[in-house]
Design a binder for these strands. Structure first.
Lengths: 178, 178
DNA sequence: GTAAATCATGTGGTCAGACCACTTGAATGA
DNA sequence: TCATTCAAGTGGTCTGACCACATGATTTAC
């Protein structure tokens, strides 16, 4: 018996290899990847397997294909990848409450992160709880991406509970000064 | 002129159709999907396109394929797709910090939610900051799912800053009792 | 009769080759 | 010079062919 781990399927291997290739060849977002046929040759696998890998990556929003032109590495700096995680995660439970709470959690976290910065108060006041700005201020693009996704699902009801938020801010300050 | 919307590629269409089929035929997690060849016939598209769709779904962790047996609908429990996306996230920037912070945000949020519950202290103590338990305690499955995903990325370094967490807990309590 | 070996069938995994549709840019013509 | 045409490259799709593997029925040996 022994694990006898069957080697990963070609298409999974292809995904890894393509990733490596991107790194090795220093392909940047927007750049063109080798053609499917060339990838097929370089990786010594059939074009169909290459395609299966590329299609999967495309579905993940990591690459973009343009017929007649080629395959391009996508710039996922602008939330392309997270929505997918979102759609996936949301698939079965659409509990609105959960989404709302989730949003609140992220916003609270945003404030908590900012609390560690010197001009915390000014930021809060200046931006008047505009989390688009505040999220940017944290410098954490992942946090912002996920927040954007959640906000999308939460809708723009934006019925902020300012009292609650102010409480949180107070609490954070205390925590910070302790 | 005009959008001249190119119809979605077959494999994208296949994904939708397969998902509809799953719904229509009431295929539950664990059940077997029609074979690739049958899908090819029923959807009137080539097997390669069917495979591209299935491979993508597999990468997303929505289905599972077993050679010689068939393709099976998967339960969301195993978020097996995530490591892959992670590889790409990290490949780009050094976003590890972001992920780590993100995790902290979620855990803090978890505690904040629990803080509203009567037996807050007991729970914390009883579970000794085992967030698997604590996340469940919130009843917010969305929060937990995302946390699971993020935790996966964050790796098991698990170098928890307990002092920091304790501070947070204190802050939350204060906030709560204000 | 029972247990083991064999075989047929069905399934995913992979490949190669063939077209098609589309884009681009060079070659050609007016 | 500018418009047309054409060749080459690329993704999109299909088909048919194998292979590797799993399963269950069939056959065989005991």
């Amino acid at each position: 018996m022994t694990g006898s781990h069957r080697p990963p399927s070609k298409f999974v291997a292809a995904i890894s290899q393509i990733q490596e290739m991107i790194k090795a060849d220093q392909i940047s977002p927007g750049d063109k990847l080798p053609s499917e046929r060339e990838l097929s040759e370089r990786l010594s696998i059939g074009r169909s397997s290459v395609r299966e890998a590329l299609r999967a990556l495309e579905l993940l929003g990591l690459i973009e294909t343009r017929r007649g032109e080629g395959t391009f590495l996508r710039d996922f700096k602008d939330h392309h990848l997270v929505p997918l995680i979102g759609a996936f995660i949301f698939n079965d439970d659409q509990k609105k409450e959960h989404v709302y709470d989730m949003k609140a959690v992220l916003e609270m976290g945003c404030l908590a992160i900012l609390a560690g910065q010197p001009d915390f108060d000014q930021k809060i006041i200046r931006n008047k709880l505009d989390f688009h700005e505040l999220m940017d201020a944290t410098g954490n693009s992942l946090l912002k991406k996920i927040w954007l996704v959640i906000s999308d699902y939460a809708g723009s009801s934006a019925a902020y509970d300012h009292d609650r938020l102010n409480e949180l801010i107070e609490g954070i300050k205390k925590t910070n000064h302790s």
